[in-house]
Design a protein around this nucleic acid. Structure first.
Lengths: 100, 100
DNA sequence: CAAACTGGTTTTCTTTACAAACTTGTTTTC
DNA sequence: GAAAACAAGTTTGTAAAGAAAACCAGTTTG
């Protein structure tokens, strides 16, 4: 086993395409609400919800539940932990794919 | 849903880290035998076997079973289909990660 | 000739991701 | 003013995927 096998250790929480997309969007927006993410990602509500929960459980995303008028409003933002994990993921993938 | 959602369509057969590693190794070697891949990847024999079968089923890898002396020898090589799928995957990921 | 080793494959177990159904509350409509 | 439709999410059920363990056919070793 040589060093290329590092790819086997990428953070699978971020590697999953749906979550990679979510995290990427969040990395460029201070805060995003649930419906915004829903539109941007094209995920179903159920899947967006569960992916966000996983990211929250990992401490990558902070979820703030409030109201817009009388309707529920869920605000999501990347924590600094999430930000670093994302940066790390990006450099790992880059490193791996760039070599031939 | 905007265009970033393209990432949701990456080829998951290649996206899986273990197979990404296998395919990457095969892309630089004409042919690789099972034990070579085993050492390079650090996967277990069982997992290497099933991942190779999936790649074969997809037509990405060709598996040739022969003998080295009296012992079984399994040779693996990337098909042209596999080569293109890999190239496509790389450019997609690159495209996606570079923006931001 | 029995035990250990080679080079794998198949089976079993757990974890995941997705879809569909459900929930809590709020507007509409009749 | 009750029923129906809608909004914003969550929970649940299921099927597929990945990892580990068990297995297997043949070979070499003691």
């Amino acid at each position: 086993m040589k060093e290329p096998a590092q790819i086997l250790e990428v953070d699978r929480l971020i590697h999953e395409p749906a979550r990679l997309l979510i995290v990427t969007i969040l990395s460029t927006a201070e805060k995003a609400d649930f419906l915004f993410l829903l539109r941007e990602t094209g995920l179903t509500r159920g899947n967006l919800s569960t992916h966000l929960s996983k990211l929250e459980a990992a401490g990558y995303v902070e979820i703030e539940k409030t109201y817009r008028g009388k309707l529920p409003l869920t605000l999501c933002s990347l924590t600094s932990t999430g930000q670093s994990a994302f940066e790390k993921y990006r450099t790992q993938i880059h490193q791996f794919l760039k070599s031939k």
